[in-house]
């Protein structure tokens, strides 16, 4: 079927993308503005980046966030992949409905509820709040996203490849390790990336579960933003956008090599 490039379709896509990208673009441009005022453009400048890199509290917060994100994303990827395997390959086991409920509910659960309930758990268990409690909280939240991504790949997966391996004498577990795992690796990598960026992004859950000495970057940005627009914050955001953009492009190139044309549907199934 030929696809007519209709004016309506082009217009809606162009307007949609403009709406999505214009505010971010403006933010990036103004991070290079010499003036403190948004409305006044007084030439290109890296002043705010210099100021940013001398802001030790901000740098410390960024470092904390990166460590939390890396740790929680790794843990979430392991747990999330195991959960995806259980959901797609184990048929109807006992407790499956409860399990899938616990996987899907966190995806839509308001963050204030998740944050508050995790905090109360840590208090009840008498755990000191700080770096590690945020890691645990973020692992819980992001593992469900990993599950959804990996599961959508496993569902697409041509089972006959596994059957062929077993037919050639490979036992089931080994088949999984040497055939299935390499094939779903792009999805697992994408899951890790998503978990990483979600963790880096989260303000609400971190605010609840963090303690003294473990201020994350969003918490720091939030406290700055509450006091109004600051060009330094524009600079921080620009750096974060650049990192995420770079990461996403790399990841999608990686996924493209693995998944080829199934990509749009798989991406769409992520959310």
């Amino acid at each position: 079927m030929k696809r007519n490039i209709s004016i309506f379709n082009v217009t809606s896509v162009v307007f949609g993308l403009a709406f999505l990208y214009l505010p971010i673009t403006i933010l990036v441009v103004y991070s290079f503005n010499a003036s403190r005022l948004v409305t006044v453009w007084s030439g290109w400048s890296l002043a705010w980046y210099r100021e940013l890199f001398s802001d030790e509290a901000m740098i410390a917060a960024a470092w904390t966030s990166l460590r939390i994100a890396a740790l929680s994303a790794t843990a979430a990827t392991v747990l999330g992949t195991l959960a995806a395997i259980a959901l797609t390959r184990f048929g109807r086991f006992r407790g499956r409905v409860a399990f899938s409920g616990m996987i899907y509910a966190p995806l839509v659960m308001p963050e204030v509820i998740t944050g508050l309930s995790l905090l109360l758990l840590f208090v009840a268990l008498n755990v000191d709040r700080g770096f590690w409690t945020v890691v645990l909280a973020h692992t819980t939240l992001t593992m469900c996203f990993v599950t959804v991504i990996v599961q959508s790949r496993l569902v697409d997966f041509d089972r006959s490849v596994e059957e062929a391996a077993m037919d050639l004498g490979c036992p089931p577990f080994k088949t999984f390790v040497i055939v299935t795992l390499p094939l779903i690796l792009p999805a697992i990598a994408a899951g890790w990336m998503l978990a990483f960026s979600l963790s880096l992004d989260d303000l609400v859950i971190a605010s609840f579960t963090s303690g003294p000495g473990a201020t994350t970057l969003p918490m720091r940005i939030y406290s700055e933003v509450r006091l109004g627009v600051k060009p330094e914050v524009n600079a921080v955001c620009t750096i974060m956008i650049a990192v995420v953009a770079l990461g996403t492009v790399t990841a999608s190139l990686m996924a493209k090599r693995g998944a080829r044309r199934r990509e749009p549907a798989a991406l769409a199934a992520q959310v």
């Binding site: 896509v13 949609g16 993308l17 999505l20 990208y21 505010p23 971010i24 403006i26 933010l27 103004y30 948004v38 990336m193 998503l194 960026s197 880096l200 992004d201 989260d202 303000l203 969003p218 940005i221 939030y222 933003v225 109004g228 627009v229 914050v233 524009n234 955001c237 974060m240 956008i241 995420v244 953009a245 990461g247 996403t248 999608s252 493209k256 044309r261 990509e263 749009p264 991406l267 769409a268 992520q270 959310v271």
Partner: peptide, 24 residues
């Protein structure tokens, strides 16, 4: 795939940043 990625990309940048962009 490119258009879908264009729609997804902002979702990968920080929620806070996206809200903050509107304050500007």
């Amino acid at each position: 795939p490119l258009l879908v990625m264009a729609v997804v990309l902002p979702f990968w940048t920080s929620f806070l940043i996206r809200v903050y962009a509107w304050i500007n």
